[in-house]
Design a protein around this nucleic acid. Structure first.
Lengths: 219, 219
DNA sequence: ATGTGATATACTGTTTGCAGTAATTTCCGA
DNA sequence: TCGGAAATTACTGCAAACAGTATATCACAT
């Protein structure tokens, strides 16, 4: 009787959540480009639902700063400016630093093994950008998850995704990509040796480099 | 359920925003205690509006993690656990560190003068907790504002407010209060001398101390 | 008394409709 | 042809009604 876990009442998710997710990914993929005006009535028609769940989804997106709502005027997809990108990189830098400091303390041996596997997978993909990015995402989520801090996880995911639809993501040159890989190796080493301070420092520097690479491209 | 006064339709802000703010402050003040169930129909009646704006407000609060919504089940005010508090302190630590690093770079001379004024105001309030806290909030908002980073500002405000309704906020003992004051002086000095690294370090240590003081109280 | 099933109630999720305001178009005069 | 006022359109904000499901109540059997 003691160890019965509650059932997952996923049932059918409310329409508002489905709409929220749909719009969210559409925005991040750039299918709804920056500056695009959104009409709840139009979205409702397109999605085949009524306006209410659409409006509730818009409230969520508004809270995530993915859209900007001007009362009685309308709603547009937020247009990320360079200063926004800098801000986000700054925040990611310290948050991922924190995440890695905690991860170095909390990561399990098994997770370290997984980490090494991902690293090996990434090594032979010097040119295959898409493949590299996919593994990279897995690598990151293992580490961030090892921080055992859902709030950090959520924040990092949120901010990282906001940059996703930014044109010109860092890993353009092979040199940069190799450098990034080496940085990841160093981070894995630091975590494995439980050096929290070093892991934090490396993570911060890593994001800082990504920021600079981004700024280079549009200088 | 406590006393929620009906909304005044100012015509300027949408009702949903008024409701959002009302609920938000009610939660933070503890008037809507942790674990309290919220019924949109009931809230709508109390506030004298329809369910629609209430529900939109709930979606915003949900996104802020102030409430927890279980679809088809109901809504409760999120009950902050100790691990949540630790998480929030950790995040505040690095975010305020970042804020102060930026502030040291961007603060104006005039803002430094204001900072000094606030510090002087805080000095003669060794026992007047309420007064001290009020000035303290102003002091902080000047510094955080000087980071010139709206996202950081919003995040810090959000996380700080989540801790507000936590029982036993740090400054209980006079010694702790004096220590905090000295820490603030050191921070102001660091900012004034434009030492970004030092300011960041001090800010992080400051929040770290607050965390430890909080943990002490419930040990 | 206790557990089980049926009924009733209450709340959430969604749709629909109505009011008000901003935007757009149309039409008129210069 | 252009500017501006009036009319029209279209969208947002809010309310209320409707549908379905979870919860509570109660009757009844054991």
């Amino acid at each position: 009787m003691s160890e019965l876990t509650p059932v997952e009442v996923t049932d059918l998710r409310p329409i508002r959540d489905i709409v929220h997710e749909k719009l969210r990914t559409a925005i991040m993929r750039g299918e709804l480009p920056s500056g695009e005006r959104l009409f709840d009535t139009q979205l409702a028609k397109q999605l085949g639902v009524s306006r209410t769940p659409v409006r509730e989804a818009l409230r969520m997106l508004e809270q995530e700063a993915l859209i900007v709502v001007t009362p009685r005027r309308g709603t547009i997809v937020y247009r990320l400016k360079q200063e926004d990108a800098i801000e986000i990189y700054n925040i990611r830098s310290v948050l991922e630093g924190l995440a890695l400091r905690l991860a170095a303390q909390n990561i399990t041996h098994q997770e370290i093994v997984q980490l090494r596997e991902k690293l090996e997978k990434m090594r032979p993909l010097p040119e295959n950008l898409a493949g590299y990015m996919a593994v990279h995402v897995e690598f990151n989520s293992i580490i961030i998850g090892a921080s055992r801090s859902p709030r950090i996880e959520q924040l990092v995911a949120s901010f990282a995704s906001q940059l996703r639809n930014l044109r010109g993501i860092s890993l353009t040159t092979p040199e940069r990509q190799l450098l990034a890989w080496k940085e990841h190796c160093a981070i894995a080493d630091a975590i494995e040796s439980r050096d929290a301070e070093l892991a934090e420092m490396l993570a911060r520097r890593h994001v800082e480099r990504a920021k600079e690479a981004y700024l280079m491209q549009r200088a």
